[in-house]
Amino acid sequence: MAELPIWQYDTLFLILVLLFGITALAMQNLMAAAIVFGAYSFLMCLIWTTMGAVDVAFTEAAVGAGVSTVFIFATIYNTGVCAKPKNPRLAFKLFAGLICFVTGAFLLSALSDFPNWGDPYSPVNSTISPYYIENTIRDTHVPNIVTTVLADYRGFDTLLETAVVFIACIAIYSILRVDAAKSKVVEPDIVTSPPAYDPTDSLIIRQASRIMVPFMQIFALYVIAHGHYSPGGGFQGGVILGASIILLCISFDLKYVLRQWTEKKIMILTSLGVLIFATVGLACVIMGGEYLNYEVLDPILPGDKAYARSHAILLVEIGVGITVMFSMIGIYINLASNGRFDRGL
């Protein structure tokens, strides 16, 4: 044991992460808890970068530190920030703590069976994964192994994960969406609690985001299109595209954005992404191969069989990007306007 087998920075970050997580749960003010949770996600993103998981870090930076914090904000905006418990129920908390402690002790008792951190010869690293590292270039000409496995070798799973995002979006619509014109229920508590939006008070923010949004969108398109050669892909690019529209919703007005992106358009485009993905799979069947076996698309797409797979990955990533983008926008608008699509954060 001459050299330390773990990364010192990681140890530091891990301890910091734990502190941030506990702080986020201990905060009484929900707004502060959401901000600390954003910082927690960002530290996680640093940890994953140091462990070599750049794609995961990218996703976490866009999703965990960005969009999910905004979702929590949107909920708090409609409900209020304080979380002071009326009766603390100390005995129950201690009991729950005991349950967690015992479960954790059982999990830790298996510690000696795990391979060391960073061991390249552990079962996880030496059985299946070398195949993908060695054959990705030969099969698809794509250097980013993560993108290849995501959209090609493991295409079924990604198709269904995209469908899960789509279904979650529909679920949120069905939970929250109310037609403001038809709804008889008046909810004055929501109208009075947040400070009213004043369109004249944030000139700097509006102008700054007006300049930023096009660059964000170009960067997101680059992330989707260049996902074969660099960290990124449909999920990350889609989330950034969604975040650019969410930024417009926050800095301007929800109505301003809804004039361009009507509810109908958002719903159609959310399903269009899954449809593109599924159609690419169906095209493979029509061309005489298995579902999502891109190799048989060789006659339609330029290049040899490997390049056909590479191009099909791009098509699939575009589908994923569209679904994720509009799901994020749909979820945000529902949460921020309490399902009424009239005003928001």
């Binding site: 794609d55 996703t59 994964s129 496995v149 979006c169 999920f235 994720v324």
Partner: peptide
């Protein structure tokens, strides 16, 4: 680095936010 574990988690994060 092992790419397989990363891919499993990449989609898990996006589904997690949903």
């Amino acid at each position: 680095t092992n790419p397989l574990t990363q891919i499993l988690m990449l989609t898990a994060i996006v589904v997690g936010v949903a």
